[in-house]
Amino acid sequence: MNYFGLIIGVATLLIIGLGFPLVIQGERRFGYLWWPYMMLIGIMFIIASLFIQNDWLSVLVGVLGATFVWGSTELKEQAVRAELGWYPFNANKIKPPLENIIKKWRAPHL
């Protein structure tokens, strides 16, 4: 019996679970316009996983990266949820660098 994949699967579920508060708190404090930065952090984590020789650590860092990339695609919908009153709305969000450029891009949603 090889338990590596099963344990990795459960660990992945726990890391993806971290994505929920990450998106909720991230949108509330910073706003959905930070999505390119969140996506970039995720991509950097995934690239970093390529250079980690320990399999367990490489997988955990890779999945953490995937969680950030997925979270970046959820920020826009979370912003709408907060505007609808389903989550607390914060009017004083921290604006992202290059906000005016990011506003011209269509935020991803899958």
């Binding site: 990795i8 995934i46 990266g65």
Partner: peptide
């Protein structure tokens, strides 16, 4: 020798499975 693809495979699987 120098690159470990297991993290990349895990990341892609996690992303597309969740999607």
């Amino acid at each position: 020798i120098s690159m470990n693809f297991i993290g990349m495979v895990a990341a892609l699987t996690a992303f597309f499975s969740v999607w």
